[in-house]
Structures are given as C-alpha cells and as structure tokens.
Design a protein around this nucleic acid. Structure first.
Length: 283
DNA sequence: ACCCAGGCGGGCG
DNA sequence: CGCCCGCATGGG
C-alpha cells in the first residue's frame, strides 16, 4: 500500500461525504480517524483530512488514486468564483460559510442513474441499504478484489424477484427496464458532452426517471452545473425563502433559481439542500 | 402501531 | 398544464 500527501484548497472531506452524493454511498466516513474509504478506479482508496496539514491518500496505485481524487471531487473548480455567484442572500451566505469546502462529486452516469432511480420515495439510509445489497448480489469482483458496481447487463438479466430481494420494492421494474434499455440501444456515456437540456430530455424518457431524478443524474453523473434537483426539502426551503411560504410549481421554481444562480445552479442546490437538511431550515 | 422517506406514473378535469 | 392518488419497505 502506497501513500502520498496532497495540497488542496477549499475542500472539506467530512461535509462532502455527509452530503448524500453517489460516491458517499460506497464510502465509509470515519469521524474519529477523519478519513474515508471508498472504491474508485477499481481500487480501495483511503483519504484522510485532519484539521491542519495536507490530505493523505493511501491506495495500491497512489498516483492513479490522486488523479482519481482530483477529478472525482472537482478540485479544479474555482470555489471563490462559485461562492461569489451563489452567495446571493443571507441564507446562501450562511450555507457557504458553514459548509465551506463541500464539493460536488463526479460519478459514473450509469451508477448515478441506478442510485437515483432507487432514491425515489425513499430515505437516504435505506437507499444505502438497498444499494449495498444490490452490489453484493450482482457486482462482479474487480482486479483489486473489490466488488464492482453491477453492469446494465447484470441488472437487466436479474429477475424482478431477485431485485426485490434487495428491498427495491416498486422501483425494481423501473431499474430492470432502464438496464434493459442500456443493453439494447442506449449508451449513457455517449451523452457526456451533450448539453444539459438534451441529457435531461434523454433521461426523462427512461422509466422511473422524472424531473428531479433527471436533474440529479445530470448534475452528479454528467457534471451539468445548470441542473437544479428539486426534492421536497429544496421545494419547501425555496418556497419559504423566496415565495412567502406559498406552494409553487416545480416549473416556476426552476425559472426562479435559473434567474438567480444561472450556470452555477448545481452548486447552489448542493449548499441549499445540505444547509436545509442538516439544520432543519425547511421546517 | 403508526409515520415517513432526495418522486414517479397514470388518470383526471 | 395542474392536481390527486397509490406505491414497497425499513427505521424512528
């Protein structure tokens, strides 16, 4: 096992791993050791961040792990610029101050699609539970001896009964159908360089993917920062902050946040969601 | 014993 | 378009 130190500006490992993004579904955050273990690039990677000093990376191939780390946590994003753009009021200013260093993550489009199909009408703990059981049941062992995420082929060949054994419930039919579409004709990776609008349009044609899930996949699977997922928390927070607590349609909310945060909506959503969820500002 | 969870699809006016 | 409903399941 090799290790190396990395200097990173404006990055908070704990906040990022407590933000319920796809990568955090496969990593264990240890508050005592200030470290996380996660699987990426087919290997187990351990990242440690103490209050002072550099970040330490441990992995079988540390050079590759560092490159993976920098990409996965969007460490080239200019956070000063982003914070300037999304600190549009007191609430957002407080969110940015409180969760400074919270980063969006870059995840595989297929993995992100699966996780967010499973997320609908569900809670975060149970999404972890189902995902872990699914990986254990349908993931193949990779080169470094860790379980890989199940392929579209594996999930399309699984029976509804087998998928339900993971606890997916009514979501299993959506997942199986989407997996089959990815086997038959759809190449999710072909849309990496497509526009936000066309990525979202493509995603919303898949079963089990509506407005909110499509935006989650566009944001965290395709890195489209114009995406702004609106779940019940975010909806209530937006209505309370900007619409006098009045019920407002998703369409109207999208128009509003688009005007407010433009091409950095995705980061605005991350901070707004996290701040609202952790601190209960939606109530 | 309830109640709810990072919504979506289908049916309706 | 907007609104309403049912939905599988595990943890609080």
């Amino acid at each position: 096992m090799q290790h190396a130190d990395v200097r990173v500006d404006t990055f908070n490992l704990a906040h990022t791993f407590e933000s319920a993004q796809p990568i955090t579904f496969f990593g264990e955050f240890d508050r005592q050791g200030n470290s996380v273990d996660y699987v990426s690039s087919g290997m187990q990677i351990r990242v440690t961040q103490r209050s002072k000093g550099p970040i330490t990376i441990e992995a079988p191939d540390v050079k590759r792990a560092i490159a993976d780390f920098r990409a996965r946590f969007r460490l080239s994003d200019d956070m000063r610029h982003i914070y300037r753009q999304i600190s549009t009021d007191a609430f957002m200013g407080e969110a940015v101050r409180k969760y400074r260093g919270l980063r969006l993550t870059v995840n595989d489009p297929w993995e992100t699609t699966v996780v967010f199909i499973l997320s609908q009408f569900n809670n975060i703990k149970r999404i972890h539970l189902i995902t872990n059981r699914m990986v254990a049941s349908f993931g193949e062992v990779s080169e470094h001896g860790v379980k890989a995420f199940p392929t579209p082929d594996a999930l399309s060949r699984a029976t509804i009964r087998e998928l339900n054994a993971c606890g997916m419930g009514f979501r299993s039919k959506y997942l199986k159908a989407t997996a089959k579409a990815c086997v038959d004709s759809l190449d999710l990776n072909r849309y990496r360089r497509s526009s936000y609008a066309s990525v979202k349009e493509m995603l919303m044609e898949l079963p089990g993917i509506g407005d909110k899930v499509a935006d989650c996949i566009a944001l965290m699977g395709y890195g489209k920062l114009e995406a702004f997922p609106i779940d019940t928390w975010v909806k209530r927070t937006l209505e309370r902050l900007y619409f006098n607590g009045k019920g407002t349609s998703i369409k109207r909310l999208h128009e509003s946040v688009s005007e407010k945060w433009g091409d950095m909506q995705g980061y605005a959503q991350l901070y707004l969601y996290h701040h609202g969820r952790i601190d209960g500002y939606e109530a």
